[in-house]
């Protein structure tokens, strides 16, 4: 479904700040895979998602979705395949526009905008029902500007927007990291609900090992721009945190700098 083939990305090449962020990374996803991604700071997790989403060109390698080679396509042309939720709750929505306006834009993800009216009354009822399912009371605030919402509400809305038009691939970059624990777990279970309901192929970065083990059917760990652990199915289900740490030590040859990797 998704094939990331031998991708390299170096930032600031040829300068003193040169940083090889992706180092021949390959990842193949089957349809319906829900992959959680863990790894230390600067391991290249966000860079991997940005490479798939096309935020900048990669140095070498290929990115293929559903047998379409999208390596050369700019970010906006990949949006027809990809829904995204960012770590920063500010990034996924247009703060100065209303909830309804944001949803209307998201309902056309990947289509060339035309001269039809952006918010149709037909959509209104559909959005109302979908917002109601979020159970955050947003269905009664559809004409409120998104900038007035809390971080958690915005992330839930962004998640809804990313999946409103079913994406081939859902990319979640620590989308609950900026939220308080209670809101984070609410958004996470919402994520799981939507992913399962729509059978979305998804990649979810998290720095919480327990979440990484709890969610999804597959888990990969990145280190120095490469995948060093890749487990799925039953093998993943049987893992616990000490197993993961031991696997990391074996694969990376040193013990995990777990500053930001929450063990609990």
């Amino acid at each position: 479904m998704l094939r990331v083939e031998n991708v390299y990305k170096t930032f600031f090449p040829g300068t003193i700040n040169e940083k090889r962020a992706l180092n021949g990374l390959s990842l193949h996803l089957k349809p319906g895979d829900f992959v959680t991604v863990i790894g230390g700071n600067g391991a290249g997790k966000s860079t991997m998602l940005n490479a798939i989403a096309g935020v900048w060109p990669i140095d070498a390698g290929k990115i293929i979705i559903n047998n379409v080679d999208i390596t050369q396509r700019p970010e906006h042309q990949r949006a027809q395949f990809i829904g995204r939720v960012f770590q920063d709750p500010m990034l996924g929505t247009a703060a100065g526009m209303t909830i309804e306006e944001n949803l209307a834009i998201a309902s056309r993800r990947g289509q060339t905008p035309g001269f039809s009216w952006s918010c149709s009354s037909k959509d209104h009822d559909r959005f109302f029902e979908l917002l109601k399912e979020l159970d955050l009371g947003l269905e009664n605030r559809m004409t409120a500007k998104v900038g007035l919402l809390s971080g958690g509400q915005r992330q839930a809305l962004t998640l809804l927007m990313a999946t409103l038009k079913k994406p081939e691939l859902l990319l979640l970059d620590e989308h609950t990291a900026a939220l308080d624990p209670k809101t984070a777990s609410k958004v996470l279970s919402l994520t799981e609900k939507i992913v399962n309901r729509d059978k979305l192929t998804s990649i979810m970065i998290t720095h919480n090992m327990r979440d990484a083990l709890r969610y999804g059917n597959r888990l990969v760990m990145l280190h120095n721009g490469n995948i060093i652990i890749d487990v799925e199915g039953e093998q993943k289900q049987c893992l616990d945190i000490p197993d993961l740490l031991a696997m990391f030590e074996k694969a990376a040859g040193n013990s995990l700098d777990s500053d930001r990797l929450l063990l609990g």
Binding site: A53, A79, G92, A95, M97, A104, R108, G114, S116
Partner: peptide, 21 residues
């Protein structure tokens, strides 16, 4: 309109509207 909404969204958040295609 759809196009106008895209222009407005560009002013608020380019990252968001690019991610919308």
């Amino acid at each position: 309109t759809e196009i106008g909404a895209a222009v407005r969204a560009t002013g608020f958040n380019q990252q968001m509207i690019r991610a919308q295609g």
